[in-house]
Design a protein around this nucleic acid. Sequence first.
DNA 1: AAGCAGGTTAAGTTATCATTAACTCTATGT
DNA 2: ACATAGAGTTAATGATAACTTAACCTGCTT
Lengths: 225, 225
Amino acid sequence: METKNRKVLIADDEPDILEILKYNLSNEGYQVVTAKDGDDALEKARLTQPDLIVLDVMMPKKTGVEVCQLLRAQPAFKETLIIFLTALNDEGTQVKGLETGADDYISKPVSPRVLLSRINALFRRVKKPDGRILKIENITIDPERYIVKVDDNDITLAKKEFELIYLLAIKPGRVFLRNEILNQVWGNDVIVGDRTIDVHIRKIRQKLGVDCITTVKGVGYKFEL
Amino acid sequence: METKNRKVLIADDEPDILEILKYNLSNEGYQVVTAKDGDDALEKARLTQPDLIVLDVMMPKKTGVEVCQLLRAQPAFKETLIIFLTALNDEGTQVKGLETGADDYISKPVSPRVLLSRINALFRRVKKPDGRILKIENITIDPERYIVKVDDNDITLAKKEFELIYLLAIKPGRVFLRNEILNQVWGNDVIVGDRTIDVHIRKIRQKLGVDCITTVKGVGYKFEL
DNA sequence: AAGCAGGTTAAGTTATCATTAACTCTATGT
DNA sequence: ACATAGAGTTAATGATAACTTAACCTGCTT
C-alpha cells in the first residue's frame, strides 16, 4: 500500500464514526490519529503535529469551533488544514465555521468517499515536500537518500541544507520569501536569525559548485539554473 | 470599497443566479466576469485569466466537468482555483468532480454567503508572495518570480522598481497619483522626496526598453502600451 | 521670461547579503 | 559518561546592490 507520509487527526465523540473514517483514511495511506473530545484533540494535535485535522463540531469538553480557534491562535497550527464535520447545517454555522479559519465544512452524515475526496483536494493545494525525486536539467534531488546529484556526481548535503534546496526546487523560478523558508524548513515556531539562511545557502552553493540559487534582494531566494 | 485585486469567473446558464452571485462577489471587492455556457467559460477564462472559476455543472455547450478538464490540461490553469456548483448532489458526482481537479463542490441552491465564505477560505490557502501574474500584451509581470518578461526576454528589476510597475500594471490605463504610489510602494509613513519616484520610473523605462509608462503631468503615472 | 513639473545624472547613503570564523548543540561511538 | 565530529547557529566584518538625494537640465505654460 502506498504511504502518504501525511498525518491526519480525527476528532469525534462517536466511536463508530471515528472507526469508519480511520479505516478509510488508513486504507488510502494516511497516518491517522484519533481523539474523542475537544481537549483530547488539542492534546493530540500538540503531540503529533498533524497535517490535517477533522473536527466534529459537537463534542464534549470543547466544541470543534473552540478547538479550531485555540489551534489557529498558535503559530504552529496557523497553516494546518482543518475540516469541520457537523450535523448542524444551517447557513450561519457554516459561514462562521469557515471564518474561524477552517478550510472546509462538511455536513453529517458524511460519506467516507466524499471526505476522502475533499481531503485529497485540500492536500493538492498545499505543496509540502512530499518525498518526490526532483529533476531539473542536470540536477537530481532525492529526498529518500538526502543526496543531490549534479551530472552523476553524488553530493551529500546536511539535513537543513537539503530541506532548503528541496523546498526551492519544488517550484523552480518561484521566489521564496525568507519567512516562507523559515516556516517550511525550520517550522513556524522556531526562531532563528536571518543570517542563518544565508549561511546555509552559501554551503549549498559551495557544495554543489553550480550556480542554481539566485538571490532576490529584499525578497528571498529562488532556484534557477 | 476595498478592492481585492482578485478576478473571479462565474459560469452558469441561469441569468438570475449569475446576477445574484455577481452582485454579492462584487460587493466583497472581487472583480467578477461571467459566462453563460461551457464554451463561453473557456473563452472568458482564456481572455481574463481569473484567479478562481465557479462552474455550474449542468451547462449548455460543455458541462462544468468538461470545462474543468480542458482547463486543467493547460499549464496556465493548473493552479487556478475551481469550484463546482450543482443541483446534482449524489456522492459519485461529487467525488468525480473533486477528482477532476476542482477545489470545492457546492450543492445548489447555493447561498451567496456560503459561496463567499468558501471562496474566501480557498483564497486564504493560496496566498502567494504578492499577487497574481499580470499579462498585458507582450509584457508579463510575474510577482512569483519577481521577473518581468518582454517578448520572452526575462528582465530582472529591483524590489522597488518591481513593486512600482506591478502597482501600475494592476490597472492599465488608470493614473496613479504620486501620493498613491508613495503609499502603496513605500508605505504611509515613509517620507521620501518627489524625485525618488522619477528615478525609479526612469530605471524601469531603461531596463524594459519599452515605452509602457506614461507621465501625466501634474497628476501621476499610468501603465499604457 | 518666469515658474512649474518632470527628466537626467552622478554622487552619497543605506540596507541587505556574502563570507568567515568562532561558538553551541547533537549524535555517535568507545 | 566522555570524547569527538559534524551540524547548526550566531556575530563580526566586508562588499555590493539598492535606494535616495541633490543639482542641474529640458520643455511646457502663462
